[in-house]
Design a protein around this nucleic acid. Structure first.
Lengths: 170, 170
DNA sequence: TTCATACAGTTCTAAAATTGAACTGTCAAA
DNA sequence: TTTGACAGTTCAATTTTAGAACTGTATGAA
């Protein structure tokens, strides 16, 4: 599968993965949420090669996750700022952090604490149902095909290839 | 940076990314939540190469996200089942799906709808504060160093290399 | 004026990861 | 006896990524 094919999959998760589903992109976005805005800032915070960083930033801009905004003329310099589409990634970031906090800590404890300005307390993120407000778990959710679902006839494979016998075909 | 170094970073997000932060792993986990359990099931649903699939499954088992359980003797066959650690990835999966539903839909609409068994309604996942229950957004959250934070002295770079001048050093 | 540095990239080669395809081996059914 | 399901493993070819240097504008210091 080519990776741009992911964005055409009739699956919202696959499409999201097509945009942000690689390690460097996720780390770049972490820095964005920590207020990094400039090329050198990302590069020195992450140790990513300049080549990949340039490429990933371009892709995020193309996808509308970041906006490239000039902050000085001559030499032209730009900052990379999260768009609303980018800011909407926040729940994904928090969910990643929270899983790490729950399952990947060492003896030293949490690297970061999060304070909720509205209530002034240190908090954890909790995912709830938009309708009843109860916390969600996989077992309480039932999945139905929606209007954009793939027709049942082609449900077999992401890349539509039939698995074929591995003994010589002719 | 080598990818196993990610898991040693004093950052819960980096550690999580070290475990599930690549495209195939995320797609494999999607299938797990859709009740796929067997090698051939993953392979034909995703079109992933058998080589990579075997490797990714091994890693997920090693990380405690999946458990490998025999379902028949001779020939030995195993199923891959989400552990509790794996089930706890659910909020991440839902957050990915929800962002895709919000920002990556085509004209046809949502590929999947989610029904909450408890309340019987189709819902969206919402991330709220564990303390006050209000929905979260990036701007209302303030980050503090926790007990496991990296000392300020080495805050510079993920890989601890100082960026050095790019003109000939000798 | 010359030198060093900041910044935002681009270019190049070597190394690592991924793809695609075939191969192994056990067992069941035809 | 042959074919197919299943769960991998192996290997060559391609694609990505890493690591390092290079380009080019501009500023401040010597």
């Amino acid at each position: 599968m080519k990776w741009d094919e992911l964005e055409e999959e009739p699956c919202s998760m696959a499409r999201t993965i097509g945009v942000i589903g690689d390690r460097w992109t996720l780390l770049i976005l972490r820095e964005c949420f920590l207020r990094t805005r400039r090329f050198e800032g990302f590069q020195s915070a992450l140790g990513i090669t300049r080549h990949l960083l340039a490429e990933r930033l371009k892709k995020l801009v193309r996808q509308g996750v970041l906006r490239r905004i000039p902050y000085q003329e001559s030499p032209k310099r730009h900052e990379y700022i999260l768009t609303q589409k980018g800011l909407d990634l926040y729940p994904i970031m928090m969910a990643l952090v929270h899983w790490g906090d729950t399952h990947m800590l060492d003896e030293r404890g949490r690297p970061l604490l999060h304070e909720h300005r509205k209530c002034g307390k240190m908090f954890d993120p909790v995912m709830v149902c938009s309708e009843c407000g109860e916390p969600l778990s996989a077992k309480e959710v039932h999945v139905h095909p929606g209007p954009g679902a793939r027709p049942a006839s082609e449900k077999v494979s992401l890349d539509k290839k039939k698995p074929k016998s591995r003994r010589q075909a002719a």
